[in-house]
Design a protein around this nucleic acid. Structure first.
Lengths: 122, 122
DNA sequence: ACATGACGATTACGCCTGTAAACGATAAAT
DNA sequence: ATTTATCGTTTACAGGCGTAATCGTCATGT
């Protein structure tokens, strides 16, 4: 059961800090998405059903906390894209961005550093 | 108007070779997707409406050809992912895969080669 | 005790997607 | 000339998604 785009916006907030009440989440989303509180509640419920978040009752309200790890989500999404479009390997994606001159100076510097740390074999 | 996952499977075929008839496409998809001919026809029509493919009549049937360039599609999808999950830069994605030991030997070799070719500035 | 307000849960609803079947026109076979 | 097969076009239909409003319940203020 994969989580949708809108649901992932809610997850982003929870990954940033948790546990949070629904109200907190609406507030945190304020800048990004102009959502009614009801909308966020719906998304939270869907995430609960999907097992992506847990809710613990704190008096009157619930506090929500992610169950799905951000890293796992990120990895799943990335792998999906890379498998579909780049034959399952990372290098072709980098090559693509390189070919289109879409690597920033910062990217290039960071990549050089990253690569330098990698072992030659395996 | 973005094209869906299933639609992109059809595009993949057309990017591989074109123009093709609906029948050709069904055949080409044979291994990947067990779709009825009707299903592929639906997808082709949706792609036509979205302006992602063109159809030219050849006697009895139509031959389809991509209008959307593969590179543009790939770029859009990639940018979307990278913006959403990696702050808009490629390096963090590579870092993520590196941290999870998900770079193959081949990847590493290719990355080293790629990086070596890049200028230090800009 | 009673009205009011705050929450979560339930219901809504149109659009997109995946997956096809049915329909209609036209070419091919007999 | 008819029947039949072959195409594309139209219609279908359930489930997910985006976006909320409404309902029911329980706490809180008066």
């Amino acid at each position: 059961m994969s989580i949708s785009e809108s649901e992932s916006a809610v997850m982003q907030v929870l990954w940033g800090s948790s546990p949070l009440s629904a109200e907190d989440i609406v507030a945190a989303l304020g800048d990004t998405r102009q959502w009614q509180e009801a909308t966020v509640k719906t998304l939270l419920n869907r995430l609960l059903n999907k097992g992506a978040v847990a809710a613990e009752k704190q008096g009157r309200r619930y506090l929500y906390r992610p169950l799905l790890a951000r890293d796992d989500y990120v990895h799943g999404e990335s792998r999906n894209l890379i498998d579909r479009l780049f034959g399952g390997r990372v290098a072709p994606l980098v090559a693509h961005f390189s070919a289109h001159r879409k690597l920033s100076k910062k990217d290039i510097a960071e990549l050089k550093r990253l690569i330098a740390e990698l072992p030659d074999e395996r």
